[in-house]
Design a binder for these strands. Structure first.
Lengths: 164, 164
DNA sequence: ACCGTTTCATTCATATGTTAATGAAATTCC
DNA sequence: GGAATTTCATTAACATATGAATGAAACGGT
């Protein structure tokens, strides 16, 4: 029915592929990766953020975020803190050097935002945003079934040996 | 100006995050990863595909695709071939076992496509698709500047040492 | 035929994604 | 108040992303 090319996931991926390289070039020029950028972006807006929330806001999976924050911390751009109230938690904040990056990068980023928006009709752009938000809102909650069927896995293509 | 949450990239990522888990659950149940799935999906439609084209169609970077094909090949789902005409090239095709997977998985996938489309108004969905395609089409070509400015990199957050 | 250039898949090094498991610290319940 | 449970960050193991580099093979021009 739906050819692969026209499937919604592929359309989403193509859109991202078309948009992100411009941003990444910028990040790279400042020694940052995209995930690292996302973390900073949040910390510029929020002073101090619980690890967990940081993962949610950046859309980075917690296990990845650990390494991302490690590297940012090592670079002196962010800092971790363990609140005595709950010693499990980790609060993350940007250091002065981390904050300084904001004015360095944000102007160029804002410019890209504008270029992007202007590259489409206002209507098209509005429809795009509406659709994206609808998707995100909609598909977040629809877990109706109590316990997932847990289909039997077949272990088809795992462990790599072909390259030997 | 644009808050991080409302930026186009984040909206795109959120939409994907909302949509993909359903598919991935399916792939996992059949022992496949998403990239592996994408390769098979293309090979089901195209018999034999040049490596290069496969990368373009699946949106997988060539270096990644090497490993993906390795593992699929090792699992007996695809096969490589070196045409004598041009011994640099690599042609990839699905094996019978690889082809057999199609009828196993596609029905459920089609069902998800339908659910997704029906979870939005027809108008919203149409607007979404139009916007995505416009973005992809637009941002593919607009390299107007002859040679990119090549901004001076600063090496901020590289090599990990924080976790020691 | 020969050299420089281009094409193409692949390798390398590093960073991240994914899923399951771990361990320490809160919280609940009896 | 202490055992069982839950929460939270982290680690582990594997697969993929990213950007640069490599090496073999085709190609262009001379």
């Amino acid at each position: 029915m739906q050819s692969f090319d026209h499937s919604l996931p592929m359309r989403l991926y193509r859109a991202l592929n078309a948009v992100m390289p411009r941003f990444r070039a910028l990040f790279t020029a400042h020694g940052l990766t995209e995930p690292q950028w996302r973390v900073l972006r949040v910390l510029w807006e929020r002073e101090e953020v619980p690890f967990r929330e940081l993962a949610a806001l950046t859309l980075l999976p917690a296990p990845s975020l650990v390494g991302v924050v490690d590297r940012l911390q090592n670079a002196g751009l962010v800092a971790r803190r363990r609140p005595p109230s709950d010693r499990r938690q980790a609060l993350v904040r940007a250091t002065p050097r981390g904050r300084a990056l904001e004015e360095d990068v944000m102007p160029a980023v804002e410019r890209i935002y504008v270029e992007l928006r202007e590259s489409l009709d206002a209507d098209t752009y509005a429809g795009l945003v509406a659709g994206l938000d609808a998707l995100a809102a909609n598909a977040t909650a629809p877990r109706t079934s109590r316990h997932a069927p847990r289909a039997t896995a077949r272990r088809a293509a795992t462990t790599n040996t072909a390259g030997e």
